[in-house]
Amino acid sequence: MSPYVVLRVVSKLLIPLIFLFGFYVHFHGEYSPGGGFAAGVVVGVGVILYALIFGMEAARKAAPPYWARVGMALGALIFAGVGFVSLFMGGNYLDYTVLDPNHTYLGQHIGIVAVEFGVLVSVTAVIIAIFYGFAGRERTGDGAED
């Protein structure tokens, strides 16, 4: 547990806001700057901040490493899966128009939201995984071992 009281209190306030901002950037990505890539990084930063302030053990409890491992693959699979769904509904691969039976904009909107969700999951998981990878290491003794 970090001895810095100010950091702890302020980060407790900030971390929910960071997640909220991340999801805002994601779900508002069609109307304003943002989207899955930026939002994924922001959400990942929320977890990283939590880990930096409250320690790795607390962070491992809050966001277990296997989430990151599963999330990486799941996000990429969601993206590819949307492509296969559109393929099986009679269109080309990643052609979202067919997702709506009436072939209006709605199909495009569904496709974009689904695909961006896949990007969000994958990028968040990769960022968390990379951070856990580095933070789980400790500096080994100086000097060559062999």
Binding site: F37, V41, V123, F134, R137, G143, A144, E145
Partner: peptide, 24 residues
């Protein structure tokens, strides 16, 4: 940009492993 940070992390991971084995 996002691919860039992923590859940067990959490179740094290699550097950390090199440090663990060679000590420099």
């Amino acid at each position: 940009i996002v691919v860039g940070v992923a590859t940067l992390a990959m490179g740094l991971a290699l550097v950390v492993r090199i440090r663990e084995i060679y000590g420099t």
